[in-house]
């Protein structure tokens, strides 16, 4: 027992060191000649456009459910008129970015992990490497940058649809005009709410893309490892999102709201 503890720690340190080296390789390859612009655009299409429906529906339902759940309580306190602003602040500051990032971790990180994992198993990555091409530049840099670009855009779209969902839910019980609802929503918001919230989604995007690529690129041989890579990509990316969110909230409360 006493001998297994250091061995476990040793494994964890090696894994952490591997990730740091992989991250260094990623940053070094961003600035190399022969940037894969076409592949970056293709990945933006796959990661962004093909996630629109999932993210859009999730965003709309988020706002809709949050309004339905909170309205009766707010009504009990005679604060029903604060529902639009409460929903807007909750969605824009916290729920929108985190939930959308977690949804994207499930969809995108697993997909990248499985794709690169199966390329590793079928020796496609080795084939690229031995031909003298640069698989990091083609496979990793493009996917991570596409996530960094597309996750904030998807989050903003989901935020907008969540507000629309909130408006729809408000109209079920009480008739409220769209102008009044959105005026109340935006009156409660400022750039101090929006900018840190969008800023942290850039880091969420990096975490999703990087973890997916790392797990897939470094998967073991054998078909089972493809599933393991996809699964561990989702788990690790989700943990990173929650950890980064905690740090972002703390930093925001110190620097933005103080």
């Amino acid at each position: 027992m006493t001998r297994s503890v250091p061995a476990t720690w040793n494994k964890q340190f090696i894994a952490a060191g591997d990730q740091v080296v992989f991250m260094g390789t990623f940053f070094r390859n961003i600035f190399r000649r022969g940037f894969e612009w076409n592949e970056l655009l293709r990945q933006c299409y796959i990661i962004g456009y093909k996630s629109l429906s999932l993210v859009g529906i999730t965003g709309f339902i988020l706002g809709f459910v949050l309004t339905l759940q909170s309205a009766p309580t707010m009504k009990a306190f005679g604060a029903e008129s604060f529902v639009p602003s409460m929903v807007a602040i909750s969605i824009i500051r916290e729920i929108g970015p985190v939930i959308i990032a977690l949804i994207c971790a499930g969809k995108i990180a697993s997909s990248i992990g499985a794709e690169l994992g199966s390329m590793k198993v079928s020796e496609q990555i080795d084939a690229m490497e031995v031909s003298g091409a640069n698989p990091i530049q083609y496979l990793v840099v493009t996917r991570v940058l596409a996530c960094i670009v597309m996750i904030p855009i998807l989050t903003l779209m989901a935020d907008a649809l969540a507000l629309a969902g909130g408006f729809t839910a408000s109209n079920i019980s009480n008739k409220i005009s769209a102008v009044l609802y959105f005026n109340k929503s935006f009156a409660a918001l400022s750039f101090v709410d929006l900018i840190p919230a969008v800023g942290k989604t850039i880091f969420f995007g990096f975490a999703i893309g990087f973890v997916g690529c790392y797990k897939g690129y470094n998967s073991d041989r054998g078909t089972e490892s493809v599933g393991v890579a996809a699964n561990s990509a989702v788990v690790s990316a989700s943990l990173w999102i929650i950890l980064l969110d905690a740090i972002a909230v703390q930093l925001t409360s110190v620097f933005a709201y103080s």
Binding site: S122, E123, Q124, D126, V130, S131, G132
Partner: peptide, 19 residues
């Protein structure tokens, strides 16, 4: 290493075509 690899062709067991 990259320059040397260009002079070496490697045919993988599976063909390793980019699918």
């Amino acid at each position: 290493l990259k320059a040397m690899r260009i002079k070496i062709g490697f045919l993988f067991q599976s063909g390793a075509l980019y699918d």
